Computed example of a mutant assay.
Amino acid sequence: MFSLADLPDTIPIFPLPGALLLPRARLPLHIFEPRYLAMLDDCLKTQHRLIGMVQPQEGSAMSAGRLHGIGCAGRVTQFSETEDGRYMITLTGISRFRFSRDVTGFSPYVKAEVSWPDFQRDLGGEEEDPDFDREVFLKLLSRYFEVAGLETDWSNLEEADDELLINSLSMLCPFAVEEKQALLEAPQLVDRRQTLTALMDFTCRGGSSAPDELLQ
């Protein structure tokens, strides 16, 4: 487990639209672009093995030009190499961070100075949501999946702990970039659950994007 003192001031950044990572959750990634293959090679040489996942602002390219100010760092916990030189990796979420500024250099990928103190709670144990009404939530989720044309293994969802359930759905549901960012920036699990519920309810009522107040 990481402490605040263990976290580096500079990490590589992987700007990938729609790829949301949250603390203690796992994100599988397929790495094939040369610059990100180089990023992974460099990352595996470090002790922390951290990669920062950041959402590009909606409509922008995958570059450092227009990135959201908050991302989440994940530690490479699994990786395998294919015969043609690509990587299949899994990041395990460690902590969110604030994107301070790019670090200039000769690497083909983005490095950034980041700060962690605002998210010390991420380094603790699993969060709880004492007001979570699972039965009501799962009924809404069923309607949302029907409207969105999605399928899932309901037995796994029903057995998942609160944090795993809420965070997994936040990561996997096909929300827009700004909606994903709102889920990432939710201060605590209860806030994320409320945001997730509002997004699903809005979709069930025929909306195509999140209410504006969720994206402020």
Rank of each mutant, 00 (worst) to 15 (best):
R101L: 07
L214V: 15
L214N: 14
V136T: 14
M62V: 02
L215Y: 12
L16S: 11
L150I: 13
R26S: 06
F99G: 02
G125M: 07
L91S: 11
R26Q: 10
P15L: 06
D129K: 00
D129L: 06
G69Q: 03
A73T: 06
E128I: 14
K45M: 13
Y36S: 10
T46M: 09
L22G: 03
P28V: 05
D6A: 12
D191R: 12
F137T: 00
R96M: 08
P15Y: 04
L67M: 04
L91E: 03
L196D: 05
L189Q: 02
Y87K: 03
D42R: 12
S142T: 15
P34K: 06
G93D: 10
E146I: 15
I89P: 02
A25G: 08
F132E: 07
M1A: 13
L7E: 09
R96P: 04
D118T: 00
A38D: 15
E213W: 15
S208C: 11
A19Y: 05
A38E: 15
Q188A: 11
T195H: 07
P12M: 07
E185K: 10
K139I: 12
I13A: 03
P211D: 14
Q194P: 02
T197K: 07
E213T: 15
L123P: 07
L183W: 07
D162Q: 10
I89F: 08
G52T: 04
T203D: 09
Q194D: 12
A148N: 08
H48W: 09
R134S: 01
D133R: 14
L196T: 04
E159Q: 10
G65N: 07
Q181E: 12
G124N: 11
L140K: 09
F2L: 13
S115G: 04
S209M: 14
R24Q: 09
D162P: 06
T46S: 14
R193D: 10
P117C: 01
R75H: 02
G124P: 10
P15E: 08
T92A: 12
G69H: 01
C72Q: 01
M88G: 13
E158C: 01
L189C: 08
D41C: 10
S100A: 12
F132P: 07
E178R: 14
L4Y: 13
E58W: 00
G207W: 12
R75I: 00
D42W: 05
L67G: 00
P15R: 05
E178Q: 13
M53G: 08
E185C: 14
F97P: 01
L141K: 04
D131H: 13
M1R: 12
C204T: 15
S209K: 15
G65F: 00
R66I: 00
